[in-house]
Amino acid sequence: MRKALIPVLTVVAALVVIWYVAAVALNSAWAYNKAGRANIELTFSDLVKDTLSQEKPRLPAPHQVGIEIWKTTVEKKITSKRSLVYHGWITLSSTLLGFAIGTSMGILLAVGIVHNRAMDMSVMPWAIASQTIPILAIAPMIIVVLNSIGIQGLLPKAIISAYLSFFPVVVGMVKGLRSPDRMELDLLKTYNATRSETFWKLRLPSSMPYLFASLKIGIAASLVGAIVGELPTGAVQGLGARLLAGSYYGQTIQIWSALLSAAVLAALLVAIINLLQQVTLKRMGMA
């Protein structure tokens, strides 16, 4: 853990430096524009100072985003509509619900595919086709259709999350459930084991490493789904709403702080799955 810290911090530091340089470069046009109209000659230090403190910069500087996040998390009440924690929770709850639905669907489909030849032939092409449709196109449809039958709020967003997260789980679990080799299957045959015994005692435990790899992709996809699902709902609440509202009003700092929060949230979720994986595989004697 400690060994990983130095390289990680180095990369982060490098990114911050690049970010600052880019902020100065990208925001300089507006700074020169302002100075030109006021007939002022800009020195380099003035330029840097201006580009890093604009109200609606093209690219906000890291500290601006940091201050915005601080203000909208620590300094705001959680119940406030301007609190990122509030919006983050909205997004997180539909992410988790969608992830749960998607993972269960994915595992069930994988079990079906592995045990039933008809499903094996028919389901996989559809699963693949489902992922070729741009989620941005289908998300509003899901929201509208569900709204027309009276389903609103958390569930439609969760379904979009599930739509994105079931796929990696299906693919991973099919591979995992099929990972036992001929010899391992023959061994159980010599014991005259039933299909369900083969599943519980061999296929399922064998699939665990594959499952966790899929879950990591699935939860990140779930978060993306939840954010995308928040866009067509009229940008009322959630990180997606913050992104959309920010872009309506040119609030780049707000956009970037929402973006960064979403990224941190995703990293945390993946880290939790990672921890779960380590604990599980360790208990199974596989790590």
């Binding site: 010899m183 391992e184 010599t190």
Partner: peptide, 13 residues
């Protein structure tokens, strides 16, 4: 019968 294969084939978990 009991069958012993070329590899031990013990379950790692």
């Amino acid at each position: 019968y009991g069958y012993v294969f070329q590899a031990a084939g013990l379950y790692p978990w």
